[in-house]
Design a protein around this nucleic acid. Structure first.
Length: 655
DNA sequence: GCGAGCGTTAGT
DNA sequence: ACTAACGCTCGC
């Protein structure tokens, strides 16, 4: 999920979005708040000279009020976002007045009308009297006039903050002093007030964090994911013991576990391309990391009353019959697991349409696309990948399912007829295009089948003749997977604590960075804001001009001339701040926020994390793989003549 | 190469 | 809480 957040340039002229310093020709100053912005980082930069001259920044034009809509479901046109659906629902509700609708819309967009769980969390937090970092920041930055959260904040030399509008209004009434303390405000600030960008950034960051909290806290596995290493790993101790799966790694895609259909680019923040047909992975752990098939052992991913999302063909069941574009799959269960060794196990009893088998049957009934992964372990299949790999082969639909007696003789197995229905060609073909609807194959064993089930309703995923591609003809099922997948309550508690702590730590660090003194580059102590809206430690600024007096005595040839004013340039810009230097006042609101953030940091650092609580997870391994070392899937390279010539880099699975 | 012996995850 | 699940590694 991407969030289109726009940021202006900071007081040093560095774009807060791309962190570069734009040259003057790429910098645009807002006509209203005189804030500089980096043109190439604007989502909708002005197109004509005229509009450039009258340009209003996203803050002043209200552009940022609109939350970007994301998370459009795969293949289902432009509809499908929960947010869009919710807004449509509000609009369609005749029982609401226009005003009520507007209010509901606003609540929705500001994240207030989100999940009940979060409300409960919120209540708990409030009852405990604990505020989050962002709440704390927001609560500090009130305008001294309107008492609302600062909008385009300006800071007076006496250290008080106000909205630009309120400030201008006050001055427009003929006042020449601070609305809070009645100190005189210099004429230069009245005629040319500057926005205090440090405060702007702090408020933006705090707001952003609130939004992120509200929108992601429901999908906990994505958050807890961040504590995981990029690679799945095993500890040395675990290896010695033969403990295969000490920990699975981070999930790189943003789909929930119960996501149906292809994994498209919008779910792939890492590469922004989605999972392509033909991509392969070393093992189940890495295949899981790219979201193609979540279970580590089970061949079927699914839920009884919801449907099955994916299957693996690994040759574990002798009855499987693979014809590439279609195959016969055997259900799960019915095995004698007494020795707990799955691969050597034999059928011990009949399979029934329960659990995963029921999930597959439901996907058959509703015509859902089921992701198919082939494993090189399937030595009987001509279509299995070579090398020790798992390969994503695209989506298939289950057309029929039934029960037959398995090849092992005395026990019944569930059978599923899978037919390919993907928009990308299968890895074993040289076709340019994906599948076209194909007739049902002849399946002799159907003559012996019992409990035959066929789809009667129209399939959810079907071929659109007009568009010439497969797509969701009915909306894909909304994800039901919301809550933490960590079941152990202790582990859950620990993760939750670690998560919130980590998140607020980052937020705190980022906020503190926004309050850096432009002279010592440290977080400011006794912050002062110049009339040109640059922030420094009081001590840094004063010492910078130590020894310099406001007036300069001049003498020539023994004669004393009229004293001349000393020019003292702001360390960040050419503004003369000599007057301000005479009596710089600490911006108390900024100071308080900094102090609180620092205090929280100290408290957190003093509180040791009990590692014992999370034994067996990431802390055992000494040599944890680091970020950037993420194992990316291999894309199978299609061999054409040109490629073959330069194919010294052909992937290992092509030998 | 086989299989013991373990591991994690998630459905129910 | 229980347990099934087309896995994984190491030692024999």
């Amino acid at each position: 999920m991407t969030r289109d957040t726009q940021f202006p340039c900071d007081p040093a002229g560095v774009c807060m979005r791309c962190k570069s310093t734009p040259p003057p020709e790429e910098s645009l100053t807002c006509g209203t708040c005189v804030t500089p912005w980096h043109v190439s980082c604007l989502s909708s930069p002005p197109k004509t000279l005229e509009s450039t001259l009258q340009w209003l920044c996203p803050d002043c034009s209200g552009e940022t009020d609109a939350l970007p809509v994301s998370g459009v479901a795969a293949g289902y046109g432009s509809v499908g976002s929960d947010l869009v659906v919710a807004i449509h629902e509000i609009e369609a509700d005749d029982s609401l007045s226009a005003e009520e609708k507007a209010k509901k819309r606003q609540q929705l967009l500001s994240g207030k009308a989100v999940v009940h769980e979060d409300d409960e969390e919120e209540k708990k937090r409030k009852s405990k009297g604990k505020k989050t970092v962002d709440e704390d920041v927001l609560s500090h930055f009130h305008c001294s006039f309107c008492m609302q959260l600062l909008q385009k904040p300006v800071s007076t030399p006496c250290g008080h903050n106000a909205c630009l509008k309120c400030f201008l209004k006050w001055m427009g009434q003929g006042n020449r002093s601070c609305g809070t303390c009645r100190s005189v405000v210099p004429e230069s600030m009245i005629s040319n007030p500057h926005i205090n960008l440090s405060i702007v950034s702090a408020i933006r960051l705090a707001r952003l964090s609130k939004r992120v909290d509200a929108s992601t806290s429901k999908v906990v596995h994505v958050i807890s994911n961040e504590d995981r290493p990029d690679k799945a790993f095993r500890t040395d101790r675990a290896k010695k013991l033969g403990n295969a799966n000490a920990s699975s790694g981070k999930i790189f895609v943003t789909i929930p576990r119960d996501h149906f259909g292809p994994i498209t680019a919008e779910y792939d923040p890492v590469r922004n391309q989605g999972v392509l047909v033909g991509e392969s992975w070393k093992g189940r752990l890495t295949a899981r990391q790219w979201g193609v098939h979540f279970p580590l052992v089970s061949g079927i991913a699914g839920q009884t009353s919801y449907g099955a999302q994916s299957v693996v063909l690994a040759g574990g069941y002798e009855d499987d019959e693979d014809h590439g574009e279609w195959f016969l799959y055997t259900g799960s269960g019915g095995r004698d697991l007494s020795t707990r060794n799955l691969r050597t196990n034999v059928q011990g009893f009949d399979q029934v349409f329960l659990k995963f088998n029921a999930a597959l049957r439901l996907s058959c009934q509703l015509g859902y696309p089921v992701r198919v992964v082939r494993s090189s372990k399937d030595i009987h299949s001509a279509y299995a990948p070579e090398g020790e790999l798992l390969r994503y082969d695209g989506v298939y639909r289950i057309e029929k399912c039934w029960i037959k007696v398995g090849v092992q003789g005395s026990y019944k197995v569930c059978r599923f007829l899978f037919i390919r229905c993907d928009n990308e060609p299968a890895p074993w073909t040289s076709d340019e295009h994906g599948d076209r609807p194909r007739p049902l194959p002849n399946v002799p064993e159907l003559n012996m089948a019992t409990n035959l089930f066929e789809r009667k309703e129209s399939p959810s995923w079907d071929f659109d003749e007009g568009e010439g591609r497969w797509r969701w003809m009915k909306p894909p099922p909304a994800s039901r997977k919301a809550v933490n997948n960590v079941k152990d309550p202790e582990e859950r508690k620990f993760l939750r604590k670690a998560m919130t702590s980590a998140r607020s730590n980052t937020m705190r660090a980022r906020l503190l960075k926004e309050f850096k003194c432009q002279i010592c580059q440290q977080v400011m102590t006794n912050p002062v804001t110049t009339p040109c809206a640059h922030n420094f430690c009081k001590a840094c600024l004063v010492s910078k001009f130590a020894g310099k007096t406001l007036m300069r005595e001049r003498s020539r040839g023994g004669r004393t001339l009229r004293a001349q004013k000393n020019v003292m340039k702001c360390p960040c810009c050419p503004t003369d701040i000599a007057e301000f230097i005479q009596n710089p006042q600490v911006n108390r609101e900024v100071a308080e926020v900094i102090e609180k953030l620092k205090k929280q940091e100290e408290e957190d650092n003093a509180e040791p994390v009990d590692e014992g609580e999370c034994s067996g997870t990431s802390h055992e391994e000494e040599t944890l793989p680091v970020s950037g070392d993420a194992e990316q899937p291999k894309k199978r390279i299609k061999l054409d003549i040109d490629a073959a010539v330069s194919a010294t880099v052909v992937e290992s699975d092509m030998k």
